[in-house]
């Protein structure tokens, strides 16, 4: 069943998220291949940059504190996309939903304590090759009001 194009332009948010140091470590190490155990995110694999988890090394580094793995941003910036595909009026079958495409733009690094506010908007709804596509654009600002992350999320609903 085709999703009604009249929902193009519908907005979701704002959603606010405070970045915490342990969450940054957990994400960087999960991506990096560590094995979480006993309440820790696990031992950092050798290839993972210490700027992402080691306070002492990061303090001496270019950013003065640990920084977020860039795509950590999805943890908070996904909210409008999640809200759109779960919006009962759109009627998306979540079991048939897969992630089709993703764009992320990072205008600055993110550090523990940053407070990110994300808003989003349905940019497009269309059908192609028997599948339905929902495209959501997001923008995340820090506590100073600067745009730090822009996202373009494309969900594909298989038929």
């Amino acid at each position: 069943m085709a999703i009604d194009k009249r929902f193009i332009g519908r907005e979701y948010g704002p959603y606010t998220y405070t970045i915490g140091a342990e969450k940054l470590r957990e994400f960087a190490l999960a991506v990096g291949g560590a094995h979480p155990a006993a309440g820790t995110p696990g031992e950092p694999p050798e290839h993972v940059s210490p700027l992402l988890y080691d306070d002492a090394a990061a303090k001496k580094g270019p950013y003065g504190d640990i920084i977020a793995f860039p795509s950590f941003a999805v943890v908070f910036a996904i909210r409008p996309f999640g809200a759109a595909v779960a919006d009962p009026e759109l009627g998306v079958n979540l079991l048939m939903l897969v992630h089709g495409e993703q764009e992320l733009e990072f205008l600055d690094v993110m550090r523990p304590g940053d407070v990110m506010t994300t808003t989003g908007r349905i940019e497009n709804i269309y059908g192609k090759a028997g599948m339905e596509f929902v495209v959501v654009a997001t923008e995340s600002r820090n506590q100073r009001g600067d745009v730090v992350v822009k996202g373009l999320w494309t969900g594909v609903i298989r038929s």
């Binding site: 700027l51 793995f69 992630h99 764009e103 992320l104 690094v109």
Partner: peptide, 28 residues
Amino acid sequence: LCTLAWAVEAVGLFVGDPGRIRKVKVRF
């Protein structure tokens, strides 16, 4: 998005600093 993160990781290692990544665009 984990596959995307690994692509970002690959480029972060290549340039020597994950904080330098500015944009990623993928099709799964």
